[in-house]
Write a protein that binds this DNA or RNA. Sequence first.
DNA 1: GCCAACGTTGGC
DNA 2: GCCAACGTTGGC
Length: 137
Amino acid sequence: MAYWLFKSEPDSWSWEQQKAKGKEGEEWDGIRNYQARNFMRQMAIGDQAFFYHSNKGLEIVGIVEVCALSHPDSTTDDERWDCVDIRAVKDMPKPVTLKQVKATPELAEMSLVKSMRLSVQPVTPQEWQIVCKMGGL
DNA sequence: GCCAACGTTGGC
DNA sequence: GCCAACGTTGGC
């Protein structure tokens, strides 16, 4: 199983909205970036991912899992763009802020820090462990 | 709201 | 295939 991180601006799609979708989950549409798309194509059912609020909040607020494999993005006719579906799994008891991540030497290599603009990114098992611990899991 | 970083587009 | 122009993202 692999680990990932999804970024979203809470103004356009928030953790609360994601949770409201429950077990059904929701299509992670609107990605128009090749790298991000390629990561989604690699995802498997059950893969775990962090849900990060960008712009406002700047923190990892919860954990989601992939519940549908990569398929065409329903919001465009452009066949280049695929996406997966994800569903909320649980809240971070204590959201982990970007500040905390940056202040943690073991997390200095995280894409969140290194590739700031990438909206779907891989997370290593080590990083996953550390962030979960910091978040109170 | 600003601006730096970076991805994409399009002319040549 | 290069690179300048342009658009977007996202932290501050």
